[in-house]
Design a protein around this nucleic acid. Structure first.
Lengths: 192, 192
DNA sequence: CCAGTTGCCTAGGAAGTATAGGCAACATAG
DNA sequence: CTATGTTGCCTATACTTCCTAGGCAACTGG
């Protein structure tokens, strides 16, 4: 039986492509094995189990998303950086829905803490927010809100949640404006 | 073989409770059948298939969430209504993680359009936003952003995405303040 | 070349989804 | 009450997915 030349990397990449094509739920070891022309049991030589595959996929997609964002915000600050950040984020999610979904999967906290990519993602976000003169602890609050808004937006969009005739792109641009506004005037704790 | 007295409603309710207990992924016809002390095949007398079960679960959870929100905002306006809305939203998600996840599942658009609950949810949201003097098309944009932020927040929270030591409740309160700020000063299209 | 490693396979089992047909509990009409 | 039609349960079965164990030969390195 000649070897098919599989490696863990190749398997994960194929999983990413399959996720984008048929959705994350469609990524099974069985489907991947069929794609490679091998038996499903053969994949266990390269990934430990489905959970291992998903973790690797999460890290791959998270890394890609972070790279995209880093490239987009490089050399920019203020609203320009925010818009670039958000645009890169949404474009990645639109172009790679399965990868994006994988990037947001809950993951073992220890693995997450050990991931250079996760750290980098946080640093890029905070660097951008510091240009709005935000510092601890407002930096944390604002960072969380930013992430929530972006994630919520692309998730609802992907789920067909914006059914109104109003073009989503227009609403998106308004949302970026709104985010810029609150980042410039982040509410203090006693603003109520 | 005496009948176990199952109905579709009972099955869906059990699914909701199981979802909250073990997560939405753990809701299987097999698990439900075990809970009722019947064979899995028996459940097909009450639900057409897994997809039908999920759709019913989505509608149930969506209705509960909408009821909670409606109750919370009744008689309130402005920031008080917003805070009540958001609090009801997050509390439901925290108390019923599986139900909440089910409420956000993509669903057949035709079924969604025919759902009184979905319509009601939209109406409640827009009623609240009108108190901020928002009108079409800003109403749509703002509504989308509100939903995105809330959904993103509770989703990231549930996935353990807010790992920093900063208490999430504090960040949450700041996010509501931020939302109130942008709703009061919703950016116009030419604000750039 | 030889020995050790390992990537493939088969075999098999567990769990979940789903269909078909049978039987008796159930509901309803006369 | 009885007869009849309905249907909720079961068993049997098939398929899919996930996973483990052991065997064999391709592969690697000395």
């Amino acid at each position: 039986m000649p070897r098919a030349g599989l490696t863990a990397e190749r398997v994960v990449l194929a999983a990413a492509e399959l996720a984008d094509r048929v959705g994350l739920d469609g990524v099974t070891l069985s489907a991947l094995a069929r794609g490679f022309g091998v038996r499903d049991a053969s994949l266990y030589s390269h990934v430990r189990n489905v959970r291992d595959l998903r973790t690797r996929l999460t890290l791959l997609a998270g890394g890609e998303l972070t790279d995209r964002i880093a490239l987009a915000v490089a050399g920019r600050s203020g609203k320009e950086a925010l818009a670039a950040f958000a645009q890169a984020y949404r474009e990645y999610a639109l172009a790679h829905p399965g990868r994006y979904a994988a990037s947001q999967l809950p993951m073992d906290q220890a693995l997450l803490a050990a991931s250079p990519t996760a750290q980098r993602s946080i640093e890029i976000t905070y660097a951008m927010l510091r240009a709005y003169d935000l510092a601890d602890p407002e930096l944390i609050d604002a960072g969380r809100m930013l992430r929530a808004t972006l994630h919520g937006y692309v998730t609802l969009e992907a789920a067909g949640g914006f059914g109104h005739a109003r073009p989503v792109q227009t609403s998106w641009e308004r949302a970026i404006d709104a985010l810029d506004l609150v980042l410039r005037r982040w509410p203090a704790a006693n603003s109520r």
